[in-house]
Amino acid sequence: MRVAVIQMNQGSDKAANIAQARRLIEGAIAADRPDMVSLPETWTNLGGGRDARMAAAEELPEPGATGGPAYEFLREVARANGIHVHGGSIIEKGEEKLFNTSLVFDPGGREVARYRKIHLFDITAPDGTGYRESALYGAGTELVCVDAGGVTLGLTVCYDMRFAEQFVALRRMGAEAILVPSNFTLQTGKDHWEVLLRARAIESQCWIIAAASYGSYEERGATRQVYGHSLVCDPWGHVVAKCSDGVGWATARIDPDVTARVRRDMPVLEHRTARRVEGL
């Protein structure tokens, strides 16, 4: 499987974000002919405050039914190009709160996976900026894996990457590659982004596919920045494809022989299963 991670500089204009995603996906398909494309976290909205998020949110349909503009765009891209599409995450309308929700469509345009972000980003950045994702979003409660062209994908979103146990749990469920769409802050990204993703790859012995947002956006009168550096990492922890600064994409081949070799030569999952020490 060849996968392209799409790096966007989205803002609060949903229609413009969809148009930007379309241009970048078309460019990646024309240049690299991937079997799957992956978009960043909340690629239809970044910034603009609560009202902009509410305006970008969509009620997700039952699989097979018609959805909103972003949902139908993802379905159309998959069907028109005969590829799997990982829709990063979009903002889902819930009964009481929003959800940060990841979707996967198969080459026929059918939704085959839906995952709600479990770990919510409630932190204070090094510059004192506070992020309180739980003020608007509810937390997911279920781990999700899905087969895509013979590769089992595990689904996560951004802040989930700091919780190694989630990645090991996905490996136990059969994951061979784990998707990590993100809006990683510039301050944390420059120190933690690649380190964490490589660590999750090494621990889980899975490919890591991390499409990220890049650049500046406006949030309640302040300018914030996200790190970008979308990448694909192999199960040994090598970064095999990476985006430069700016919008664009990077493409890599998910090689099952590499996965099999790493897992055969260092069978860490079996060693975990055979543990004898309480709590390990």
Rank of each mutant, 00 (worst) to 15 (best):
D255P: 14
D255W: 09
D257L: 11
S244I: 00
W236Q: 14
D265K: 04
C243Q: 07
D234L: 08
V262E: 00
D245W: 01
P256R: 12
L231I: 12
G246N: 11
W249Q: 01
I254E: 08
P256I: 01
S244F: 02
G237L: 02
V258Y: 03
V258F: 03
G246L: 01
A250K: 06
M266R: 13
C233F: 12
D234G: 14
W236D: 14
D257C: 00
T259I: 12
C243P: 09
R263H: 11
P256Y: 03
V240M: 11
A260D: 08
G237S: 10
V247A: 01
S244E: 06
G246Y: 09
C243G: 04
L231C: 14
L231D: 01
V258E: 06
G248A: 00
D257T: 13
T251G: 01
W249P: 01
W249R: 10
R264I: 03
W249K: 13
V262I: 15
V247L: 04
P256E: 02
I254L: 14
C233R: 07
A241M: 09
M266P: 03
V232L: 14
A252H: 08
L231P: 03
R261A: 13
D257W: 10
R253L: 09
V258H: 01
V258L: 12
M266T: 14
A260Y: 01
V239Y: 02
I254C: 00
C233M: 09
V262L: 00
A241Y: 12
R253M: 08
V262A: 08
V247C: 06
P235Q: 12
A260Q: 07
A260W: 10
G248N: 06
R263N: 13
R264M: 10
T259C: 03
R264E: 14
W249N: 05
G248Q: 02
G246R: 12
M266S: 15
K242T: 14
V258W: 09
T251L: 06
V247D: 08
C243H: 02
W236S: 15
D255C: 06
P235W: 15
T259K: 01
G237N: 10
D255E: 13
V262W: 04
L231M: 15
V232T: 14
W249C: 04
I254Q: 03
A250R: 09
H238F: 06
W249S: 04
D265E: 15
I254T: 02
A241V: 09
A260T: 08
V239C: 11
T259N: 06
H238D: 02
V240Q: 09
K242L: 05
A250S: 05
T259L: 14
R261V: 02
W236V: 01
K242Q: 15
A260F: 03
P256V: 04
R263L: 00
V247I: 15
R253P: 05
D265C: 12
W249F: 15
D255K: 11
G246I: 00
A252Y: 07
R253N: 12
K242P: 03
D234W: 15
A252V: 09
D265A: 09
R264D: 11
D265L: 11
A241S: 15
A252T: 08
W236K: 15
V240H: 07
